Computed example of a mutant assay.
Amino acid sequence: MKTTLGWVALLIVTIAVQAVLLPLVFSKGVKPDIILIIVVASGLLAGKERAIGVGFFAGVLQDLASGNVFGLNTLSKMAIGYVAGLAERKVFKESILLPVLAIIIATLFNSAVMQALLFLLGYKVELGPMLTNQVLPSLGYNVLFCIPVHRLIYRITFGKRSQF
Rank of each mutant, 00 (worst) to 15 (best):
E126H: 03
H150R: 08
L131C: 10
L131G: 12
L21Y: 09
K48I: 01
F26W: 09
I35Y: 05
L10F: 07
I104T: 10
I156D: 07
V125Q: 07
A46T: 04
V8W: 15
I104G: 14
V135K: 01
V8A: 15
S138Q: 09
F164R: 06
L136I: 07
A116L: 09
A16Y: 14
L36S: 05
G128N: 05
A16P: 01
V113Y: 08
R50Q: 13
V20D: 14
I37A: 09
V17T: 00
P129S: 08
G47P: 13
R151C: 12
L21V: 01
K31D: 01
T107F: 11
K90C: 02
A116K: 03
G85V: 07
T4V: 15
I34N: 00
T157A: 11
V30D: 04
G29V: 10
M78I: 13
A102S: 12
F119N: 07
A58F: 13
H150D: 10
L120V: 12
W7M: 08
F145T: 00
G122N: 08
I52W: 03
A79S: 12
E126A: 02
R155K: 12
I52D: 02
Y82L: 10
F57V: 07
N110I: 11
P148K: 03
V69N: 09
V54N: 01
K77L: 14
A9T: 15
A79M: 14
I105A: 15
S27F: 13
L97Y: 13
P148M: 06
F26N: 02
L86H: 13
L101V: 05
L75K: 00
A58V: 06
T74N: 05
L45M: 11
G81M: 12
L98Q: 11
G122A: 05
L11R: 14
I105P: 15
P137F: 11
K124P: 08
T4H: 15
G140H: 11
R155M: 13
L72F: 00
S66G: 13
F70I: 14
G47S: 11
V40S: 13
D63C: 00
R50L: 15
A65G: 02
A19S: 12
S95K: 00
I12K: 14
L98R: 09
L120I: 11
A112P: 07
T107L: 06
S66Q: 13
V60H: 03
P99N: 05
Y154Q: 04
P32W: 11
I15S: 02
G6V: 15
L64P: 12
T132V: 14
I37C: 11
L21H: 04
V60L: 07
I103D: 03
A58I: 05
L21E: 04
R161C: 10
G43W: 06
F119W: 14
I12S: 14
A41G: 07
S27M: 08
G29N: 06
H150S: 13
Y141H: 00
I147C: 11
V30S: 04
L144C: 04
I38P: 01
L24R: 11
S42F: 10
F145L: 02
K28D: 02
L64E: 12
G43N: 10
L139P: 00
L127T: 13
A112C: 07
W7F: 14
F158K: 01
N142M: 12
S76Y: 03
I103R: 05
F158A: 02
G81Y: 13
G71D: 03
F145S: 01
I52H: 04
L36A: 08
G81N: 09
A46K: 04
K31L: 08
L120S: 10
S138R: 09
V17Y: 15
L139E: 05
L86M: 14
Q62E: 05
